[in-house]
């Protein structure tokens, strides 16, 4: 009688420990997943700011760049597709296909904006326009904030993916279907040269 009782006690205890381990691992995965989703919302805010600034930019430039309609229209189109990609990604941050679409849309938008700025170089009137200057300043600042937020997001995605792949949490991840999260990488074909800064 007593032996089966001891056995029962031990099994219960073992079961409880396994439970604690399962709960701990599950909670860790959920916490890390929430963290990277949260980190994405930080990028989202800055991207939306950028998308809101671009129409202003196009309006200001339109008067000066009457013969460059193609570029301006390309900017508008790239901005719109980036907005749709962003909305999709915001609903499901970290989802591989959504993030890849957002990456490529953002890369395309960046490229087309650079073309616009390069074009603006040859129109000194446009460059001297104060609204244009503030807009470009604001855009560059938002650009910095986006890349900073992206870095934070990628850090959290790395942490989550690592936890997901490491033993023993990998077992829990497979049981509860924790999928991998995708990094947010933007290909920058031209590296901007570090400007000489001085006060």
């Amino acid at each position: 009688m007593s032996i089966s009782f001891i056995l029962l006690g031990l099994i219960l205890l073992l079961g409880f420990f396994v439970l604690i381990f399962l709960i701990g691992g599950y909670n860790a995965l959920v916490t890390l997943r929430n963290r990277y989703k949260n980190a994405f919302s930080q990028i989202d805010v800055q991207l939306k700011r950028r998308y809101d600034l671009i129409p202003n930019l196009v309006e200001t430039a339109k008067g000066y760049l009457q013969h460059e309609r193609g570029t301006l229209e390309a900017v508008v189109a790239a901005r719109n597709s980036a907005v749709t990609a962003n909305t999709r990604a915001a609903q499901n941050p970290g989802d591989p296909s959504a993030m890849k679409d957002l990456s490529s849309a953002e890369g395309a938008l960046g490229g087309v904006l650079n073309r616009l700025f390069a074009l603006a170089e040859s129109y000194p009137d446009l460059k001297a326009n104060t609204t244009m200057m503030t807009l470009m300043e604001e855009l560059s600042s938002t650009e910095n904030k986006v890349s900073f937020a992206r870095q934070a997001y990628n850090d959290s995605v790395m942490a989550y993916n690592t936890k997901r792949e490491v033993f023993p949490t990998v077992l829990i991840a497979n049981i509860f279907n924790f999928g991998p999260a995708e990094l947010f990488v933007i290909d920058k074909p031209e590296e901007k040269a570090a400007p000489k800064v001085s006060f």
């Binding site: 809101d52 600034l53 129409p55 719109n80 907005v83 749709t84 807009l135 300043e137």
Partner: peptide, 22 residues
Amino acid sequence: IPSAEETAQPPPMPTSVPPPLP
């Protein structure tokens, strides 16, 4: 939150955009 079908069309450009903060 708009569903997937609704986001297929690009949203219109906003007419009045808040200016950058000085």
